[in-house]
Each structure stands twice: as structure tokens, then as C-alpha cells.
Amino acid sequence: MIAEPASVRSGDRVWIWSNALFEVTRVWIYRIVTVLLAVPVSIITGLIFAILSFLHIWFFSPFVHPILIITYWLQSLWSIVLDIGVRPFLTSASKCYDGIRLRLTLE
């Protein structure tokens, strides 16, 4: 803790004015920086969003859609493998753990 000795104590007005100047400076610097940066940052982020949307709509989607059509048989095969191999195991595990109950108490 920093404190002044009682013999060389500064006036209360000094601390009141320093606090007031600090608050006014903080508020106005924030406002000025916000005005200077808000418009350019919003323009840049808008451009980035527009470019990414354009690329997604006109480039990525047309290339991904035919790939999904071609690999539909692979998706069906994977679904069958999961239904035959994984679902029975997870169903039996869920039935084993179904009876477990937790009760938390404060002692």
C-alpha cells in the first residue's frame, strides 16, 4: 500500500482533480479510439465476410455436392457398419449403466 506521511500530506483537492482528470481522459480517449477504429474494422470484417460467403456459395458448395453424390454408397455402407457393429454394444452398455443413480448430499 502506498501512502503519504502525515507531515507532507497533499491537499484533498489534488486527489479529487486527479481522479476527475483520469476519468475524463479515459472516457474521451475511448470515444476517440472507437470513432477512429470502428468504421475501418467494420468495413474490413464486412469485406472478409462477403468474400468468404462468395467462395462458399460459388466454389466450395458446387465441388462438395458432386462428391457427396458420388460417395453416397460409402455413406450407406458406413451407416450399416455402425448399425451392425456399434449400436448393439452401445445399447447393451446403456442398459448396464441405466440402473446407476447418483445422489449428492451436503454433510
Rank of each mutant, 00 (worst) to 15 (best):
W28T: 11
I29D: 03
Y30W: 03
Y30M: 00
R31N: 08
R31F: 03
I32P: 09
V33G: 01
V33R: 04
T34C: 10
V35C: 02
L36Q: 04
L36A: 05
L36V: 08
L36D: 00
L36Y: 11
L37F: 04
L37K: 06
A38M: 07
P40Y: 13
P40G: 01
P40C: 05
P40T: 12
V41W: 10
V41I: 10
S42N: 09
S42K: 04
I43Q: 03
I44T: 13
I44H: 08
I44S: 05
T45C: 06
T45N: 10
G46I: 07
L47T: 04
L47D: 03
L47H: 03
L47Y: 08
I48S: 10
I48L: 06
I48G: 09
F49Q: 15
F49I: 14
A50Y: 05
I51R: 07
I51E: 10
L52W: 04
L52K: 05
S53L: 08
L55M: 04
H56Q: 05
H56T: 02
I57C: 08
I57T: 15
W58R: 10
W58T: 06
W58C: 06
W58I: 03
W58Q: 09
W58D: 12
F59Y: 02
F59R: 01
F59W: 07
S61V: 12
P62V: 00
P62R: 05
P62N: 09
F63N: 13
V64L: 00
V64W: 11
V64C: 01
H65K: 15
H65S: 11
H65D: 08
P66V: 07
P66L: 02
P66A: 13
I67Q: 13
I67R: 11
I67Y: 05
L68A: 07
I69N: 11
I69R: 05
I69H: 06
I69L: 06
I69C: 04
I69M: 06
I70A: 08
I70C: 00
T71I: 12
T71H: 07
T71S: 10
W73P: 07
L74P: 08
L74S: 02
Q75S: 14
S76G: 01
S76Q: 05
L77N: 08
L77K: 11
L77I: 07
W78V: 00
W78L: 03
W78D: 00
S79V: 04
S79Q: 07
S79H: 13
V81S: 01
V81N: 03
L82P: 00
L82T: 11
L82F: 04
D83K: 15
D83H: 09
D83M: 15
D83R: 12
I84H: 01
I84Y: 07
I84P: 06
I84K: 06
G85E: 09
G85P: 02
G85T: 13
R87A: 13
R87C: 03
R87F: 14
P88A: 01
P88D: 07
L90R: 06
L90S: 05
T91H: 05
S92K: 13
A93N: 05
A93M: 15
A93T: 14
S94D: 09
K95W: 14
K95P: 00
K95V: 04
K95E: 15
C96E: 11
C96I: 11
C96R: 15
Y97G: 01
Y97P: 02
Y97D: 02
Y97F: 09
D98E: 13
G99N: 02
G99I: 10
G99F: 05
G99K: 08
R101T: 01
R101P: 00
R101E: 15
R101Q: 15
R101K: 15
R103P: 00
L104Y: 12
